[in-house]
Design a protein around this nucleic acid. Structure first.
Length: 499
RNA sequence: GCCCCCAUCGUCUAGCCCGGUCCAGGACAUCGGCCCUUCAAGCCGGUAACGCGGGUUCGAAUCCCGCUGGGGGCACCA
């Protein structure tokens, strides 16, 4: 048997990490099983679905490297893959349930149902549909229709049905009492299908063998199983994966902000880091290994090893993982890292839209000397913004610590002369000049190194000083030193004036 | 309120099925130290968890029951 799974997003928003995480495990499971992955767009809620969101979701899945064998864009033998294009099928199947009396027309209006619901809440009892339209005669239906009511189609939960047992691949055996279920609507009064129904019809029509979904759907399972039964179909295997929680311990949703996959892409996260991180939430190999390539993940994944408890989406570890993958990318394809960093600098307005080859080479140099400090592209801001600003932004604390006093101005002036005199301006020559100057002034190297760093970069953290000076170039180094000297002297004189 | 799921360090988790090898292991984060021109990295070390109560057993993180806590669901949303 060929394993077939599906991911069925509804295009009512951007793909968020919770959805991506689900898609990932469907994909991982099916790739491990050498099966087929189907993408189905659940756009039956037409008021909230848009084509733009659909396109965006596909794009984000592709960015993550999750490929599908059948879907709205590539087609396939069981298409179409958009629910709005399958209405004929739903209507046909709805009719079949109606004919079997497994479903019935319900003429209750939303207002009436709402009132029933509110009454139930007020009386502290669980709301269940009254079943008012369960046994309507043809005459009743004609009368109700004559009032202008458009009926919905309700599924008839068989009475006296034995317990519904779900053998979940992750949760194990879960039992539901059919008495707790009421007749539910499967088709709106406008004839469009509802999620539960469309899901069953499509999963069957698309030959889906395994349904991996979030455990928020567990309570839908008995209803769906009942429908499979009414149709006389076997149901697919189900597996309910834990829900992903935000740091507030609530189900991850758009409300959490910054949970859209494209936001991570925009921030320059590496898709392979995100995917590796996804794998570690809910699934962990016994040996405690954490870094996996995609093929390794596919090879080692076992759905039986899936965890059952909800996990909190906490990005601390993701940032670390991204750093690890960044180092790999830096070694194998530095251009890729340079692109990401350029994107970040552009968003911050530190780089123009049009990047010349020279400018690009310069960024590459900066990236090279930043090395392992780059975990995320934005780290370039904390460690190397001064490479891209005309004026150094001085960190007040750094200045306070290293850039004050007349002797310091003197020392910097001395350094300025030493650097100006340097014939070559490469790393070795710079180091020789700086250390030489320190020796001539009879001080330890670090006594000049720290102030020099602050004078040139405005901060106490960053790449190696000599490399940084080389990349900055003689002209800018001398200019910045001059400015720092003026800064110290004006601070000194104003202090003297006020003191 | 009703139904269902879950429960090990702050976080992701290993161990649980097949009780002893677990005064609970790893990773991220955090705190110290080393290294070093700074930071980061690296290396060394530390803090930190079996929710509670009952059983069963010679022995329970592991099995059973209850409680508590957390989460999800109860739509003409998906």
């Amino acid at each position: 048997m060929i394993v077939r799974t599906r991911y069925a997003p509804s295009p009512t928003g951007y793909l968020h990490v919770g959805g991506a995480w689900m898609a990932f495990f469907n994909w991982l499971f099916v790739r491990h099983s050498r099966g087929q992955f189907v993408l189905r767009v659940e756009d039956t809620d037409r008021s909230r679905s848009t084509e733009a969101f659909e396109a965006a979701i596909l794009e984000d899945l592709r960015w993550l490297g999750l490929d599908w064998d059948e879907g709205p864009d590539v087609g396939g033998p069981y298409g179409p893959y958009r629910q709005t294009e399958r209405s004929g099928l739903y209507q046909q199947q709805a009719r079949s349930l109606l004919e079997k009396s497994a479903a019935y027309l319900c003429y209750c209006t939303p207002e009436e149902l709402d009132a029933e619901r509110q009454r139930a809440v007020a009386e502290h009892r669980p709301y269940r549909y009254s079943g008012r339209c369960r046994d309507l005669s043809a005459a009743d239906r004609d009368r109700l229709a004559a009032e202008g009511r458009r009926p919905t189609l309700r599924f008839r939960v068989p009475s006296g049905h034995p317990a519904i047992v779900v053998h979940d691949l992750v949760l194990g055996r879960v039992e539901f009492n059919p008495e707790d279920l009421d007749d539910f609507i499967i088709q709106r009064s406008d004839g469009t299908p509802l999620y539960n129904f469309a899901n069953v019809v499509d999963d069957r029509a698309m030959r889906i063998t395994h349904v991996l979904r979030g455990s928020e759907h567990l309570s839908n399972t008995p209803r769906q199983f009942l429908m499979y039964e009414a149709f006389g179909w076997d149901h697919p295997q189900v597996a309910h994966l834990p829900v992903l929680l935000g740091v507030d311990r609530k189900k991850l949703s758009k409300r959490h902000g910054d949970t859209a996959v494209r936001e991570y892409a925009a921030q320059g996260y590496l898709p392979e880091a995100l995917v590796n991180f996804f794998a570690l939430m809910g699934w962990y190999p016994e040996d405690g290994r954490e870094l996996f390539t995609i093929p390794e993940l596919i090879e080692r994944f076992r759905i039986e090893e899936m965890g059952r408890s909800a996990a909190i989406f906490d990005t601390q570890k993701l940032d670390w993982l991204n750093g690890v993958y960044m180092q790999g990318a830096l070694r194998r394809s530095p251009d890729r890292v340079v692109d990401l960093v350029i994107g970040c600098l552009q968003r911050e307005g530190l780089l123009d839209g049009q990047v010349s080859p020279e400018r690009r080479a310069y960024v590459a140099q900066v990236v090279a000397i930043l090395g392992e400090r780059l975990r995320l592209p934005r780290d370039i801001l904390t460690y190397g913004d001064f490479f891209f600003r005309d004026d150094v932004v001085y960190d007040p604390q750094a200045v306070q610590k290293h850039l004050k006093g007349a002797e310091m101005a003197d020392l910097l002036r001395y350094l300025q002369r030493a650097l100006a005199a340097a014939k070559k301006f490469d790393r070795e020559a710079i180091e020789a000049a700086v250390r030489g100057a320190a020796a001539e002034r009879g001080v330890e190297s670090k006594v000049v190194i720290h102030p020099l760093r602050v004078a040139l970069t405005g901060k106490t953290v960053g790449p190696g000083l000599f490399e940084l000076i080389e990349v900055l170039g003689k002209e800018r180094v001398l200019a910045r030193l001059a400015r720092a000297i003026t800064l110290i002297e004006s601070a000194g004189s104003s202090a003297a004036a006020t003191g």
